[in-house]
Computed example of a mutant assay.
Amino acid sequence: MEEIVLQNKPKLIKWLSLDHIIVLQHVQAKKLITMSQYRDLKEMKAKDRVIQLLDIILERGENACRDFLYLLKEDDVNEISPELSDWIKTVDTEDQKTEKDKGRECLNRPIQETTNMTEQSGIQVTCKNSASGGGSIIAPVITGGNLSSFEMNTTVAPSGRQVVQTNYQKSDRDCEHRPIQDYQRFLKENTSKLIQKVKNFDPIIDDLDLHDELVANVRAKPTDQEKMRKLLTCVNCESIAKDLFNALCEHEKRLMNELLKRY
């Protein structure tokens, strides 16, 4: 979507400049720009206003460009130019959504409409084994889904008997590999502890792909506890809950390992 906007930027400038005021109102109504950006754009000349608007949309990335193209599909917007109306009908925005995009959409759905997803986790172990003098090696079987660091050294004794030395080291990030069936439920059951004990809030929210307005509302809270409480009330989608779970594992390893031991 970003590429489509960029490639057609000269045409969009021409079309949208025909009624830049109504375009700006629709963009603001869809919350594609902040109030500060809206005020700055109002002070500009018509053509400069459209150019700056498109630059803002492009800077915000793929999701903002897709939302902008959705907006252009609305009759109230594209009727300002017959050429724009004809062109936007040829733009396919439906089949280009990524899983992350779908996850972000869940933030706008009522909680009862969301569904739980079952995640599968696994581990890959690479072993390099060899034997000399006619010896043979039978590959061992490894079971368990909570391994995160695994080393296996295999040697062959003079008798031809296989000797396997296994070295397992537990990583601080084991929580990322812990199979969780319901991330929303995990966060809900641990809400109190997360609010009380999460200290590295800023890098956690930086890892989440959330709308700018939501991020601003959360960051506006005066303490990390209130920020975490506000964030948890906004997570009503399983995919966003999973992203938050992984961000917590990254930045609050000890806390998450403690919570997972009891879960």
Rank of each mutant, 00 (worst) to 15 (best):
residue 222 P to C: 05
residue 226 E to I: 15
residue 219 R to D: 05
residue 222 P to I: 04
residue 222 P to F: 04
residue 217 N to E: 06
residue 214 L to Q: 09
residue 215 V to M: 13
residue 241 A to N: 06
residue 225 Q to I: 01
residue 212 D to G: 15
residue 241 A to C: 11
residue 226 E to S: 09
residue 230 K to W: 02
residue 214 L to S: 06
residue 226 E to T: 03
residue 219 R to Y: 03
residue 221 K to Y: 11
residue 232 L to D: 05
residue 215 V to E: 05
residue 210 L to H: 04
residue 229 R to P: 00
residue 211 H to M: 02
residue 226 E to Y: 10
residue 228 M to W: 08
residue 214 L to M: 12
residue 228 M to T: 12
residue 217 N to L: 07
residue 235 V to Y: 03
residue 213 E to L: 15
residue 210 L to G: 01
residue 217 N to S: 13
residue 214 L to I: 11
residue 215 V to S: 03
residue 239 S to W: 10
residue 216 A to V: 03
residue 217 N to G: 11
residue 213 E to G: 04
residue 230 K to R: 02
residue 234 C to S: 11
residue 217 N to F: 06
residue 242 K to Q: 15
residue 226 E to A: 06
residue 216 A to Q: 03
residue 237 C to I: 09
residue 216 A to E: 14
residue 222 P to W: 04
residue 241 A to P: 09
residue 230 K to V: 01
residue 230 K to D: 05
residue 235 V to G: 05
residue 237 C to K: 08
residue 240 I to R: 02
residue 215 V to R: 14
residue 211 H to F: 03
residue 225 Q to N: 15
residue 219 R to C: 05
residue 233 T to N: 14
residue 241 A to I: 04
residue 211 H to R: 07
residue 216 A to R: 07
residue 234 C to K: 13
residue 215 V to P: 00
residue 233 T to D: 08
residue 224 D to T: 15
residue 218 V to L: 08
residue 223 T to A: 01
residue 223 T to D: 12
residue 239 S to A: 14
residue 225 Q to A: 15
residue 237 C to Q: 04
residue 227 K to T: 14
residue 226 E to R: 14
residue 212 D to K: 12
residue 210 L to S: 09
residue 218 V to N: 07
residue 213 E to P: 03
residue 217 N to M: 05
residue 220 A to W: 02
residue 221 K to L: 11
residue 216 A to G: 00
residue 229 R to W: 06
residue 233 T to L: 12
residue 234 C to W: 10
residue 234 C to F: 09
residue 210 L to Y: 01
residue 211 H to C: 02
residue 242 K to V: 11
residue 219 R to P: 00
residue 223 T to G: 02
residue 224 D to P: 07
residue 219 R to A: 06
residue 231 L to E: 09
residue 242 K to C: 12
residue 232 L to T: 08
residue 234 C to L: 08
residue 231 L to Q: 02
residue 210 L to V: 08
residue 234 C to V: 00
residue 240 I to H: 03
residue 216 A to M: 10
residue 210 L to R: 06
residue 239 S to F: 13
residue 230 K to F: 09
residue 227 K to M: 13
residue 222 P to Q: 07
residue 227 K to D: 10
residue 240 I to W: 00
residue 239 S to Y: 09
residue 217 N to T: 12
residue 242 K to I: 07
residue 240 I to M: 14
